[in-house]
Design a binder for these strands. Structure first.
Lengths: 186, 186, 186, 186
DNA sequence: GATGAATGAGACTTCATTCAT
DNA sequence: GATGAATGAAGTCTCATTCAT
């Protein structure tokens, strides 16, 4: 990681901050728009983030990192089912609370290597937690590794379609996840 | 329903056919594009379908009608759980097989009254099937009427995110639905 | 003048009636629009009136005829100045009260021969009244024949720019005309 | 007033120059058209002038400024009538010589604040000159402040309807104004 | 590096006129 | 004659990306 000049770093921060605001507002990311709100030239934004996706993934990165962190902790829990279920809830909560994450999770192609790395990390953890739960006989055997991410995206999407008030989203998502988990138990 | 002149009807058909192709290809609908591919003037397309949504809903209409038809039959089945589960499978199958349906189902605002009518019909059937299954003690009581559509959309979305080959989609969707249904059983 | 079939005559009437309404509303004339409001096909409207101008002139024709009629009477009045001034007031009143007339009066090219004929008739009367008033020494000699129409159009336009309430327009126009007439007196 | 970058300023000039040519030709302003003739992208034109009106008013601005300047000088003249009459002549000359001015003068809503400012300035001067002339007993008392602009627009319009050759327009306009002024004298 | 003006493809839409039915 | 669907040129406007300054 090359370190940036101090002013460049400040601009980078501004851009990401503004982008985060836009994402939270639900406004679709547009690099021109970001530049204007950040009080910077478009060119500056393009220098830092060649595409909308790159910026979006950068915005989502901290959340992905947090998820990976939570996953590491989950791997240390004793009860395999609790560890597994708890991690999935984290995944869902994060997506429902952060539109950028939902988009990044659903994309098959990533713009940044860092994103791919983190996603793989999270997926690997999920795989491991699933394997343990399966080995403990806590989970039905027909759930494949590759199903975890899609299903979590599906639950986030269902919550979004339900389109309750923002405050209502988290409980809704958890209710959906609980139902699914009940179906997953052995 | 006013019947169209013969030539108008022919053009209407062409437009809808082309739109169906585009939808199946996954190309986003654009009225100009449709006009070009159909070999018609833009104005003709606009006359028949003032907005992209109107065209999309028209493309989806036959599927919605089929769903409503299936629903009527489901209401005549003896086993409340089978009737309910079978209907949900129809819903998921349809959405997975038809991107237009998935979009129309997820929209909260409809462009055509006919769409609203059909959606309400399908929803009413789902509600009734759910009520019967609940009364028969086959379904957990915490599933609300309003959850059915979001959950089916969520499963279709999960399947889409899984993005297996087209041939693989249907079994994937069914696997997801089965898991969910198991979680829904009382 | 070829007489129309009875149904054609009815359509002609409808079209002109609708057009008159549109003119009075201030809506710009569009043949499609006229057709829709008249409950007729566009083609029918086009058959009767090949251009917007033709229709507009047809709408204005009765007013032009009335003006010509008033002009004939004015020619019979004893006082040349009163005859002249009175006629100009008629011209202005008519234009202010009828947007179609204002447009037709300002056009240099007419669509219908009948319009040209009537305009020339009105102009000829104005010329004659002016000549008499001039001969009687009531009017300054530097007002040319060709100035009458432009000046009346100008007054109507000034009234329009002033854009008082409709009810206020007539008095405004008359005030403007009075001022001009005072300037025209010998 | 933010100063433009050099290249932006050059384009701004080109656009306004082209627009001025179109206005002088009598061609209705269209931003696409302007872009093509100026050899610029449409977007560039839209960046500088979001609407046709904004461009038209920009084209008219120098003339409005000149009028305001002449008005200031008129306020320093001794003879109230001469000052008043001379200013009106300026107004009419300007409108007859510049179609953009005629349009801007007739509009009740302005696109640019600068236009509103200048128009109010000119109107205020007219009002002041009229008040002085009235106080000196040179002008009939029934001419209201609000009549000045409409009347000048009316004269310009009358000249346009007269549609003499361009060379003939100025004398015609002056003749019409003289007549009106004679009618305005006390 | 930073800036932001310029670009122009392309989407959307309207409407006067034609012509098949 | 009447109908009204079809036409498509032409206008408006947006926006992702480039590149001169």
């Amino acid at each position: 990681m090359t370190s940036l000049r101090k002013d460049a770093a400040r601009n980078w921060d501004r851009i990401v901050t503004v982008a985060r605001e836009l994402v939270d507002e639900g406004t679709p990311l547009q690099l021109n728009d970001v530049a204007r709100r950040a009080g910077l030239g478009v060119g500056t934004v393009y220098r830092h983030f060649p595409t909308t996706e790159a910026l979006l993934e950068t915005v989502a990165t901290p959340c992905l990192e947090a998820l990976a962190g939570h996953g590491e902790q989950a791997l240390t829990r004793d009860d395999p089912w609790q560890a597994f279920a708890g991690f999935l809830q984290r995944l869902v909560d994060a997506q429902v609370g952060d539109p950028s994450l939902a988009k990044v999770a659903a994309n098959t192609q990533d713009a940044l290597p860092r994103t791919t790395e983190l996603k793989q990390q999270v997926i690997a953890i999920g795989r491991e937690l699933l394997a343990r739960a399966r080995k403990a006989g806590a989970v039905r055997p027909d759930l494949a590794d590759g199903d975890l991410v899609p299903l979590m995206c599906g639950i986030a999407y269902a919550t979004y379609v339900h389109s309750a008030t923002p405050a209502d989203r988290l409980p809704t998502a958890r209710r959906y996840l609980d139902t699914l988990l009940r179906g997953l138990r052995a």
